[in-house]
Simulated assay, not measured.
Amino acid sequence: MLKPETLRERRKRELRQQLSDTATVMFLERGFDAVRVADVARACGVTEKTVFNHFGSKEELLADRWDTHVDALGARLAEAEPLDAALEVLGEELDFLVASARRHGWEEIRRFGELVRTTPALVAHHRAARDRLTEAAVQALATRAGTTPDDPVVRITAAAVTGLWNVYALSLQRHLPKGAARAAREVRADLARAADALRRGL
């Protein structure tokens, strides 16, 4: 049973969300490079140090879902079949995206994706985050198999599993113009096809 959230934890979570939401709006309006962390802090009525207490970098203000992916994939790989574990995590991320689109509009989701793809610092951040996701998968798979992280089977399995994140990103980019509901269906179908190819051993 999950422990109830304390008042301190709730306030911390709410401030983190406020910082991320405010930064996202500012980045979309002005461009990522034109907005400083100090600008986001000022807009939220906090210090720059407070922002960095919640986010390790400026890039994380916008791309703040990677920690969720790393934790969720690691936990699921401890029990579920690797591809099923990855599809579950990506399915939840797609649900989160569709819910965000309902709140903010699909056009904002499209602009968000365009900002990430056209900003070198964000592209680099996403690549580094995917590498971190792969290493987390390596550790989880090695522990489950009772082997070491340098086991070649563990390494190639982790690379294949987290390769689904590339499929997800490219599929989402391709299908975004079709609207939230149809895009979600198409992305799920692409992920299922990719996973089936891996299950068949390519």
Rank of each mutant, 00 (worst) to 15 (best):
D84W: 07
D84F: 09
D84C: 12
A85I: 07
A86Q: 02
L87G: 01
L87N: 02
L90V: 12
L90M: 13
E92V: 14
E92T: 15
E93V: 10
E93I: 07
F96A: 13
F96L: 07
S100N: 12
A101P: 05
A101G: 15
A101W: 08
R103Y: 09
H104T: 11
R110E: 06
G113Y: 12
L115A: 01
V116S: 03
V116A: 08
A121M: 09
A121S: 13
A129W: 03
R130Y: 01
R132E: 14
R132Y: 13
L133P: 04
T134W: 04
E135K: 09
E135V: 01
V138Y: 01
V138G: 02
A140R: 00
A140Y: 10
A140T: 08
L141F: 00
A142N: 04
A142C: 02
T143G: 13
T143Y: 09
R144A: 10
T148N: 07
P149G: 00
R155L: 15
R155D: 09
I156C: 13
I156S: 13
T157D: 07
A158V: 02
A160H: 11
A160N: 14
L164K: 11
N166W: 14
N166K: 13
N166P: 03
V167Q: 01
A169G: 06
Q173T: 13
Q173H: 15
R174T: 10
